[in-house]
Computed example of a mutant assay.
Amino acid sequence: MTMDVSKLTKLSPIEIGYIVNPALPVIPFAMEVHRAGCAAPHAHPRGQLIFASRGVMRVICSRDIWVVPPSQAVWVPPEVEHEVYFPGDASLRNLFIDQSVSRVLPNECKVLKVSPLLRELILESVKVGDTYESDSAGYRLMMVIIDELRSMEPTDLRLPMGQDERLQRAMDFLLSNPGDKRAIDELAIIAGASSRTLARLFVRETGLTFGTWRKRLILQEAVKRLGKGHSVTSVAFDLGYGSLSAFIDMFRHALGSPPGQYVQAARQTL
């Protein structure tokens, strides 16, 4: 999960995010990126749907981490600080949404499942750009996008982080060693706390049990490695799974499709 961001191309905040204009409820943005990331955490008046139709993103928002495949998108509300990193090649198809309409969307960062309909709507919106006028076909398309976003189903790819130093030591170790299988009592020695205290810290500061948090970490790491071209078998066993079928079942349950289908989707471009 760790990433040397110093080796990534630095991207300045996208100026579209700072345009305040209710007459343009949605402004689409398309960009091809290669091993790049934000120059610094930033926020802007427009909400942002961060979507890579090809490639994997790592998004940090409000101390939470997401590793996001092409079947998912991250919603960032207006004025919420965030960072985005692309460890490989990615095709961005983002939507910047004016506050006049974004109030009907979640008020916190969420990962949303991108339906086939939304993918097509995003494709069409990129063609329209920001040249549409009120009550035009382009304007009506953008409002359909807002309606579709309201019905999107959230996913469990969020990996919440903690602030307690003991919890951070445990998390940092697991982030650097996502395939490590040691139990919580062994991890507690690294954290400098009893296993009972560490278990309470996970629930209190993340809302997840230790076991659930580690499963989400493994899922994020699997998404990242599959996006880099690693085989399903190598990813499964490197991340501590004793059987390939158990890994596939976990992946399908979390993302709605087996890892083989995910790999195919990751190579497609809108």
Rank of each mutant, 00 (worst) to 15 (best):
G227R: 09
E79D: 11
L95Y: 04
P77V: 02
I97S: 00
A246P: 00
R225L: 12
L201S: 13
M152Y: 01
I60G: 09
L270V: 07
G242R: 15
Y139T: 01
S195C: 02
P106R: 13
T206N: 11
I16Y: 05
A193I: 09
K127I: 02
S257D: 01
T269C: 06
L174C: 09
H253W: 03
S245Q: 06
E165H: 08
M142G: 02
M250E: 11
P154I: 01
E221A: 14
F29A: 00
A170D: 01
E120A: 10
A137T: 07
R166Q: 09
T209D: 09
C38K: 07
R252I: 00
A137N: 05
F247D: 00
I184M: 12
I97E: 00
P78E: 04
L239K: 05
A188I: 04
S125P: 04
V235R: 08
A222K: 03
Y139G: 01
T2F: 09
V232F: 05
A265K: 14
L201C: 11
I122W: 01
P70S: 14
R140C: 02
H44W: 01
V263D: 00
K127Y: 08
P178H: 13
L201E: 15
M161R: 15
V20P: 06
A183Q: 14
C61I: 12
V232Q: 08
H253S: 15
L239R: 10
P13G: 10
I190T: 15
F202Y: 15
E133D: 09
H253V: 06
V126G: 11
V235E: 04
R103W: 15
R166F: 08
F237H: 14
A265N: 06
L255P: 02
S6T: 13
I19F: 02
S194T: 13
Q72L: 11
D4Y: 07
S62W: 07
H44F: 02
V203R: 14
L118K: 00
P259E: 06
Y132N: 07
I97F: 02
L239S: 03
W213P: 05
S91R: 14
M3C: 04
D156N: 10
E83G: 00
W66M: 14
G37T: 14
L174E: 04
A73G: 13
E124F: 06
Q220R: 13
P259W: 08
